[in-house]
Write a protein that binds this DNA or RNA. Structure first.
Lengths: 124, 124
DNA sequence: TATACTGTGTATATCTTATATGTACACTAG
DNA sequence: CTAGTGTACATATAAGATATACACAGTATA
């Protein structure tokens, strides 16, 4: 398979796996219903523990990317991108709200942040 | 002093201290040059270790809120709010950039985020 | 039903980071 | 000198993240 796991990458192994699979799914390289390698296969190929692959697959399933059935294997889910997008947006909204709250002490408003992120001038 | 440390608050003790002092400074309750209680005093009053207060003061100094001089004590700094604001903005810019990068997989743009945050009525 | 695949549950090991601490030492003013 | 101040060092503890082995259970099919 296409997965590469690098010791130079500071991300944990399970995350290197999920990230690469997510990208493959998002880009269409992996299409819905495609069977993923079994956790044993993948573990052998990457020379890491089966359990670490299981962890990666479990994460992917929780996030809606794949479906796993005991005794059968794991398969790319027929992803509802709109739903996933909404969930991600909710998550982001939450993070931004926290940032805004922390920024309030410095008299930094939402508009200030939007402006600076756009890369345009900051007001005086 | 005005500091209250609560075991119910999930934040660590040193953070409860820094947060309350930051707020007092930001609101003007603590003015520049004001002498803070010595770490021993504060520790005694709050019934926690001197070292934890030292940690809190050290953080405050690193962030530019106070100045500490060995043998003398700690004093509220003559804060350059514009500078602090800029630093905070840079920090935020960095965080938002990370969020945007992660969001790209879901075809979520900066504008999408700005819109959804505005929609939630986040305004000061 | 035997078998050769598949995933699962439980228990643990290791490592890192965060948090909190005591004690002995050093600086400063009067 | 002394009585206050902060500092450095060495730990201790707890919590969380990461990775693992091995025995167990589900599934398809010859």
């Amino acid at each position: 398979m296409f997965i590469v796991i690098s010791p130079l990458n500071p991300d944990p192994m399970y995350k290197q796996v999920t990230d690469q699979i997510k990208d493959a799914i998002a880009s269409g390289t992996l299409r819905p219903e495609t069977k993923l390698p079994s956790i044993r296969e993948m573990a052998k190929e990457l020379k890491i523990s089966m359990i670490t692959i299981k962890r990666a697959y479990a994460d992917l399933e929780n996030e809606g990317y794949i479906l796993t059935r005991s005794g059968l294997g794991s398969f790319v889910a027929d992803i509802n991108w709109d739903k996933l997008r909404e969930e991600k947006l909710t998550e982001i909204r939450f993070e931004i709200t926290k940032i805004l709250h922390a920024a309030a002490r410095f008299d930094i408003s939402a508009e200030d942040i939007f402006t600076t992120v756009r890369g345009k001038g900051v007001k005086e």
